[in-house]
Design a protein around this nucleic acid. Structure first.
Length: 325
RNA sequence: GGAGGUGUGGCCGAGUGGACAAUGGCAGCAGACUGUAAAUCUGCCGGGCAACGCCCUACGGAGGUUCGAAUCCUCCCGCCUCCA
């Protein structure tokens, strides 16, 4: 593609391995295998938006202590549930982690299902200044009182480019764009224009795991059942008893929101399981859509993953080897 | 046995003479995505086609009334409730 056309500039050697794909396809397992099998060894950089939260373990399918003992994991358990995480913050810290890992002569293996996070890390993200919680809160209140259309109209005045791009019903993005324009004095579209995706790219060898929908859906159901069996309810109950507000960012995690209803006695457990499975399926579908359009991913079937690992390893090694010369 | 109710698209559930291939929700499928992203949002969703329009099939079944029925009538079948 473009890189080849340039000719003079050889494509930069891959510096990191990225494992992508929908939830429950086995990304973590593959990441572990690569970390242990690649010559020189590797360390995992978690690119998952919810596994960063301490105390949210079972429901986020967080790698357990024994795995983390075998292979260092980064950006897991780095936040308290009330702290706010973001794609930009992730990209910044992941770059630090990657540099440190490479400094140790090991391979950074980025594993995660949050598409935007991966893109922010590997392709760069516009350096938009931090938002303002107060402004955000005010906007949220106005949206409730005046209605979203009023705010969308205001955005059309401040940032017509973004306003035209967004669906008028996209509450979250309309509010965010307004917040950026209001706080920074510059429209979001302006920030993006000055540094779009792709201007800070990190060379990565990307492997994707995929499964036929029906198998994936079965796996999701099985996984949710296992979460419950392994004491997930107790975990959530503990979080609530600690006094954590279910409105916190960490409770955005699929399953936690649902489980809170059961802890409060509003839903039977069966409904929690049901709705969690359903929400996870929709999530998996969205991930597939995202990664499908992600460039340069080499896809592997996640069926019988153990048996395919040698093949994937070989593929990754070849790409990294080329980069080493 | 008597009285009443009910049967709608994969599911739930509106619709009670034309504007109905049938509101809405769920499930499903497709897509978008620049700092909440496991979030947020959009589109499709009986079938067929030379397809901005046409045809076929369809509101438990069979008949009937009507220019016209998911909607009214008759009979039949299933389910539910109450009385016995």
């Amino acid at each position: 593609m473009i890189q080849e056309a340039a000719g003079l500039d050889a494509p930069p050697p891959p510096l990191v391995v990225a494992v992508v794909g929908a939830t429950a396809t086995g990304k973590s397992a593959l990441g572990m295998a690569l970390a242990e099998l690649l010559p020189g060894g590797g360390e995992i950089v978690n690119a998952d938006a919810l596994q960063v939260y301490r105390g949210f373990d079972l429901g986020t399918a967080k790698p357990g202590a024994s795995l983390r003992l075998r292979v260092p994991h980064h950006l897991i358990d780095v936040l308290d549930p009330h702290e706010r995480w973001s794609a930009g913050e992730f990209a910044r810290r992941a770059r630090l982690a990657i540099a440190a890992i490479r400094g140790r002569g090991r391979w950074p293996i980025v594993v995660g299902g949050s598409g935007l996070y991966l893109r922010a890390l590997l392709a760069g993200i516009s350096p938009i200044p931090a938002g303002d919680p107060e402004v955000r809160e005010r906007l949220r209140r106005r949206a409730a009182e005046e209605g979203l259309p009023a705010l969308a109209a205001e955005l059309a005045g401040l940032d017509p480019v973004t306003a035209a791009r967004l669906a008028p019903g996209d509450r979250q993005r309309v509010l965010r764009a307004l917040e950026v324009a209001l706080v920074s004095g510059r429209p979001l579209s302006g920030w993006i224009a000055s540094q779009p995706f792709g201007t800070q790219s990190i060379a990565a060898i990307r492997v994707g795991l995929t499964l036929p929908r029906s198998i994936l859906y079965d796996r999701i159901a099985g996984r949710v059942d296992r979460m419950v069996e392994s004491g997930w309810l107790e975990e959530v109950r503990g979080l609530i008893e600690r006094g954590l507000d279910p409105g916190l960012p960490a409770f955005q995690a699929i399953g936690y929101r649902q489980m809170v209803h059961h802890v409060r006695g509003e839903w039977p457990l069966a409904r929690v399981v049901d709705e969690t499975v359903r929400a996870t399926r929709r999530f998996a579908k969205r991930q597939e859509t995202w990664f499908r359009s992600e460039p340069d991913v080499t896809w592997f079937s996640a069926e019988d993953l153990d048996r395919r690992i040698p093949l994937i390893l070989e593929h990754v090694q070849r790409a990294l080897g080329e980069g080493r010369e």
